[in-house]
């Protein structure tokens, strides 16, 4: 490799103004950490596809909230998302309780129905709405660079989207740490947790509520489909090499950092969407951790055979 290519590939992405780089990388990290910690819980409960289901089902909630209030303020979107998530969860639970349909098929029926409803509402009221499906589907982190900072008490803070993500990440971490025992017990043995008097339904529904808030806040950054990548990749990578939950959560945070750093690098180098770059890097990172583990365990096998 000649030195010009080396410089172009490895140095140039970091020649942006340092504040922008820091903003983007930290935003990526916040999204990945908030999603990643929740994702660990989803993976342990075997409902990882709930991320995909909710991220599609929230659309009509957002549209209706916008149509009623005429604003795209954070709290309006959060209420819309919470209501839509509530309707989705209730519908899925009703279908499961009153028929032979399994959970995954129920999820498939409900989320496609909700998403279609959202698209129809957008088409019907397209004159009032500047909320197009593309923006929900793709999302773009790089907009953060042009968004003005928030002025508060004479200090210029980072943009509102970044601050929102800080709140969400803090919310997720506080939630998981404070309901740690309940989440752990019900993930491994729901019936036992119930019989031990732990509030299973409350735990599950709070998890879903916080998941929907996280998804809706991550929408404009990473989009509806790639938020699923942020939900599952850090946690799944951590679960490959850790057994104990505190370690899994710590490793998830570390993998999130790797993903946001390398994702930022790839997106600037190739000039592509940072969310997609983060998802791609997350996949490559998981593959390398996994193969590293395979090689290690193979060596160990050989050693045990030799002795």
């Amino acid at each position: 490799m000649n030195s010009e290519v080396f410089i172009e590939v490895f140095r140039d992405p970091w020649l942006l103004e340092w504040r922008s780089s820091l903003l983007l990388v930290s935003m990526g990290w916040l999204v990945a950490i908030a999603c990643g910690w929740l994702g660990v819980m989803l993976l342990l409960r075997r409902i990882a596809m709930m991320g995909d289901t909710l991220s599609h089902s929230l659309l009509p909630g957002l549209v209706i909230a916008f149509l009623i209030t005429g604003s795209r303020a954070t709290w309006v979107m959060w209420i819309g998302a919470l209501v839509a998530a509530g309707v989705t969860i209730v519908l899925i639970e009703l279908i499961q309780r009153y028929s032979r349909i399994k959970a995954d098929a129920a999820m498939g029926v409900v989320f496609s129905f909700m998403f279609a409803l959202g698209v129809i509402l957008i088409t019907l009221f397209s004159r009032q709405i500047d909320l197009d499906a593309d923006c929900v589907l793709y999302g773009e982190l790089l907009y953060l660079m042009v968004e003005p900072g928030v002025h508060w008490m004479g200090v210029t803070l980072p943009p509102a989207a970044w601050l929102r993500m800080v709140v969400i990440a803090a919310l997720v971490i506080v939630f998981i740490l404070s309901l740690y025992k309940e989440l752990l017990a019900s993930a491994f043995d729901n019936d036992w947790a119930g019989s031990a008097g732990l509030p299973n339904r409350f735990t599950h529904h709070t998890l879903m509520a916080i998941l929907s808030l996280t998804i809706v806040s991550a929408f404009e950054a990473v989009g509806a489909i790639l938020v699923v990548a942020m939900l599952v990749f850090p946690g799944a990578t951590a679960l490959l090499h850790c057994r104990r939950l505190p370690l899994v959560l710590a490793a998830t945070s570390f993998h999130s950092l790797v993903i946001s750093l390398a994702g930022f690098h790839l997106s600037i180098w190739l000039n592509v969407s940072m969310a997609a770059a983060m998802a791609t890097v997350a996949m490559l990172w998981m593959i390398s951790i996994w193969s590293g583990q395979k090689i290690k365990s193979k060596k160990k096998d050989n050693l045990t055979c030799a002795t």
Partner: peptide, 11 residues
Amino acid sequence: LALVLSGFYGL
């Protein structure tokens, strides 16, 4: 499923 869905899509 979630990994393949989102990882492939991002790629």
